[in-house]
Design a binder for these strands. Sequence first.
DNA 1: ACTTGACTTAGAGTTCACTCTAAGGTTTAA
DNA 2: TTAAACCTTAGAGTGAACTCTAAGTCAAGT
Lengths: 126, 126
Amino acid sequence: MDGRSIKQAALELGMSEHTLRFYEKAGIIAQVERNSSGYRSYSNRDLEILKFALRLRQTAMPLEQIKHYLHLLREDAEPETRLHLLLEHLERIEGSIQALEEAKTLLEYKVGLYHKTLASPVLTGE
Amino acid sequence: MDGRSIKQAALELGMSEHTLRFYEKAGIIAQVERNSSGYRSYSNRDLEILKFALRLRQTAMPLEQIKHYLHLLREDAEPETRLHLLLEHLERIEGSIQALEEAKTLLEYKVGLYHKTLASPVLTGE
DNA sequence: ACTTGACTTAGAGTTCACTCTAAGGTTTAA
DNA sequence: TTAAACCTTAGAGTGAACTCTAAGTCAAGT
């Protein structure tokens, strides 16, 4: 129906074929369907799940946790369990955002110094 | 004057002694002063630099880039060069913040679904 | 019939950022 | 003077997340 080759899937997702096989072998995503000659055929749903996994990876969620969450999803676990996982990760994300915002502010301040003086000490903003 | 042992420095910075030696050996920070018996003695300035390095690490800047930046700092490079590096990293940080904000929004939406229904599909928010 | 290119697998290799080990020197306190 | 708690080094080991290799199967084109 909506199946695509591993090459095509890799292209659409912006990840390597190696990584796609790796994610499957590591049990992060479920086994992908095969066509008559044994080739993987990625469905739209597979792509959706992979996109979601990539988004979580972007937020530095470890593969093990992504795996855990996607498993709960497959097994249709109690929503409470999934909720717990999501909330936990939300907190981590909020921490990361804050760390980044702080670093950003610091760097912007330094950049400001450069623009004003174009020759100045940098570090803690002395 | 203001020197402290590696143990103390590690404590103050919240990082391991191993990592402190590793950062020095890898040339990320400059050689730390030694006392009469050859033990490292971390100055306030060393701590400042390390704190700054840690903050950059928190934003997922690779050690090689941190090293590069700290080198430019030591060599008192042209401010333009340093500025360029900082601006580049700022852009990456802004990208990360955006990715995290998006993930956060997505998760918050899902959490909202949970709270409303306590039994619902999850993924793209169907 | 044959080459080309896409696919398959298991498993080895790589990179990054630590993290630890072993073998030994130094300082302090009992 | 001896134990403990600290420090030193070079180099080995770890875990995460890929990334690649080798050896082979399959499908399409000429």
